[in-house]
Write a protein that binds this DNA or RNA. Structure first.
Lengths: 232, 232
DNA sequence: CAACTAATTAAACAGTGAATTAAATTAGCT
DNA sequence: AGCTAATTTAATTCACTGTTTAATTAGTTG
């Protein structure tokens, strides 16, 4: 809403009409970058192609030239940005063994790496996957993470059968909890950093905390067996 | 009191013009209900007053009559729905003591109760508080939860000093983790229920799982201290 | 160097649906 | 009978949106 007054074009940064000279050969990638940044910040539905074009200092017609229409742009974003961003996680989890502790550690580290490399991802995930009616939810169900959560849950369940996982937790919900302890804090970082004034907490601190919580829970090592405040 | 609520007269889908007969005196509350449901499903920005009015089987002009404009409707929603919905949590946490275990259990139970009573809340929270640019974020910072997270974090920090909290976790991030383990799974329930086909998992199962995870972490009780001797 | 192709902007097109307001209509209350 | 409260109808106002066509310029090639 606020950034849409372009009737007076800034004289400085204005391209001449016609084919430009020089090497602007990765413009398509720049358009994708601009689009994904806007989509993450405002949501796909609320983002106009004009805004994306303005961010990339280009006219809306360029988006049509490179992508056709908005749906195809979104699809390109999914295929060329989101799916590749998530891909390393699968490889990583295939490498670590079947032990729950290493699986969990691998997941936490994997999300941390993804978030570090693609800062737009948590917000986009929340908006377009977590929210009902998000435009990427169905697509991700179909192609990106076909049976990824199920695979994780099954490995947890197998470990639980072998007595290598806390028997009181649910293997499927553990996957949900892992997302809630990694992607969710990443998406909410602006909030809690401000709420706590916690500018000393970086990604490493978050990972360490999360791993400690997942490893031992809230109680201190000593009183684990004696204090049965939450014992069924 | 509830004589003429949502029981639509089968013949008259459309109301007649002019003041209606009978006691339709809780219409304002019904408008708020319709609005909050839409806002949670589609987001405030994407919801038209027309849609809200249609849901309540009323014309858009009624919304103007009762609330003025959209901003005032949103404000009313915040004051009369969201804040009261969150209020019991504070009372609950004042009752349980300062022990981290009871605090955590109280928080989990408190969120579960809120979600049960107000099913729209998780989605609305995600959309309008968690997402950047959410229309309720600033308002909540100002009035609803003024120092609520800080208070929790301080109580955790104090307990940690006394050795009653796992020293490897961060008291502030523990608050974040708690939200990620409760509100987030509630908001994402449609996703994971579908992903896992987990229709056997209800709110109780979720609470039990979460408490178990927070209490002991992922590892089974016996093998906690880096032992690979699997005791059965 | 002429012709063709690629990249780009400018400007128009064709809708859409939004919030809000004014006025008319009906019911209840004194 | 008349005032007030609660509704709907219909009009007003208008900001944008995605998309397309045509013009313009730069490289490329024969």
């Amino acid at each position: 809403m606020a950034s849409n007054r372009q009737t007076i074009p800034p004289r400085a940064r204005r391209r001449r009409v016609g084919r430009p000279s020089g090497d602007d050969n990765d413009l398509r990638a720049r358009l994708l970058d601009a689009a994904i940044a806007r989509f993450a910040r405002e949501g796909i539905g609320a983002t106009s192609l004009r805004a994306v074009a303005a961010d990339a200092q280009v006219t809306p017609a360029m988006l049509h030239y490179y992508f056709g229409d908005k749906a195809q742009l979104t699809r390109a974003l999914l295929d060329e940005r989101l799916v590749p961003a998530l891909a390393p996680m699968r490889a990583r989890l295939d490498q670590v063994g079947d032990d729950p502790a290493t699986l969990v550690a691998g997941f936490v580290a994997g999300i941390a790496e993804i978030v570090r490399k693609h800062p737009w991802l948590p917000a986009l995930w929340v908006r377009e996957v977590l929210c009902e009616g998000g435009e990427l939810r169905e697509a991700l169900f179909d192609k990106a993470i076909p049976q990824f959560p199920q695979m994780l849950a099954q490995r947890f369940a197998a470990a639980q059968k072998d007595g290598r996982l806390n028997p009181a937790i649910d293997p499927r919900l553990l996957v949900v909890s892992l997302v809630g302890l990694t992607l969710f804090p990443a998406a909410g970082a602006p909030i809690w950093k401000r709420a706590f004034g916690a500018h000393d907490l970086d990604a490493n601190a978050l990972s360490a905390h999360t791993l400690a919580l997942l490893d031992g829970g809230v109680q201190p090592p000593r009183t684990r067996r004696k204090s049965n405040a939450i014992r069924k």
